[in-house]
Design a protein around this nucleic acid. Structure first.
Lengths: 206, 206
DNA sequence: CGTTTCATTGAGTGCGATCAAGCCGTGTGG
DNA sequence: CCACACGGCTTGATCGCACTCAATGAAACG
């Protein structure tokens, strides 16, 4: 990879805004980021959460169609697109990595389209928690973002989301030491509640 | 591009099924295709509609996570992944085209996530009709797929969808010569109903 | 210790789903 | 050529999940 420019943003700090020129690709070093769009009437939608190691900021056009903000203080590296282009010319490994990255992102987006189009609110939360837990050891899901962020990510309201959390807790499926940490007590039940027949990550943790 | 294998599929014919090995990328020559997934309990979700000229069938893993079927009799070309890999090595133009294609598809998927997560049923239909019309001259939307297909694409039921069509017709915003052809009579009203503040394609047709 | 922000809980509403007929174009066989 | 059946679209009546509005609880912060 080309050398990038290291930067940082404080809590809720803007990394790039909707409509900004798309001049860089980014890699998150530490912290976490939300990528989002806001409709004219104020409805907000969060397209993705970004965690350390993830790339973000690809755009098909000249400008960003989504904005990016730090959820918590974040360090990241900006790679100018021109530098990436130069690097791509000479390095087959980079080319391959970038293509794999894009195809993988595309599949992830397709999974989200499916979830928002055809899963119930409860299924979306179960699916989300399993996804978050997969970043760790599969038992604990750390969520640095607020309830509003999660709601805007899952296409729900905060109130509905809060009720769903309470419901999972009361059924003994999860434990909530606080709003930002979830312990999965009954993985099988959560998988069953997620709408998927099989556990996509079962092999990793069984 | 490498030479592909020309194939055809009849109405509702399978091009590849969920779970099949992902051995090819495809380009549609004629007809139209739906790319979809079915949940364990029978709920179906259509991830995208494919029209002549479009590429489809990319997968991050070894198997297809979605299936593809012909909506109407279709001709398409299958490009073996290995052949694409070979071609990529030698041809910078192909590399660039493929990357642009993937980034553009990613943005399209992100738009759909937004639509399904935060738009109302009426807004989703207006958005869909504008998108379909954009393939043509902007005034007519030809939809070769059934109402059920559209409903499964927009995350709605057929009944709701039908009521929305009727409503747009009664308000004089569209005309429906038949279920598969829509004439847009009042583009501005449709844009206003789509939840977007500005018309993304206004420049093309004004 | 007061203030602010965020999560949770409660009460009531409404949008879109579900269940159930009707309608209409299309194809098929007598 | 017409009777009929079939599949897909539309319309109607009702239900229920998630949203809205409102209040309370619980942390974080100055």
């Amino acid at each position: 990879m080309p050398r990038g420019i290291r930067q940082r943003a404080g809590r809720d700090g803007t990394i790039y805004a909707e409509g900004d020129a798309a001049a860089n690709w980014y890699r998150l070093i530490s912290g976490s980021v939300r990528v989002f769009r806001v409709l004219a009437d104020g409805r907000r939608h969060i397209g993705e959460f970004v965690f350390p190691g993830d790339m973000f900021g690809f755009e098909p056009g000249q400008t960003h169609i989504q904005g990016a903000e730090a959820i918590e203080p974040a360090e990241f590296v900006a790679y100018p697109i021109a530098a990436i282009e130069r690097c791509i010319v000479g390095d087959a490994a980079v080319r391959h990595a970038i293509r794999a990255l894009l195809v993988e992102r595309l599949a992830a987006a397709q999974n989200r389209v499916m979830a928002l189009g055809r899963l119930t609110a409860a299924e979306r939360l179960a699916d989300f928690l399993l996804g978050m837990a997969r970043r760790g050891d599969g038992r604990f899901a750390d969520m640095p973002m607020s309830r509003v962020d999660v709601a805007d990510y899952l296409g729900l309201t905060v109130e509905t989301l809060s009720r769903l959390f309470t419901n999972l807790r009361q059924r003994g499926i999860i434990r909530l030491p606080n709003a930002y940490h979830v312990e999965i007590l009954d993985r099988a039940a959560l998988v069953a509640a997620s709408g998927h027949s099989a556990d996509p990550a079962a092999a990793d943790f069984d």
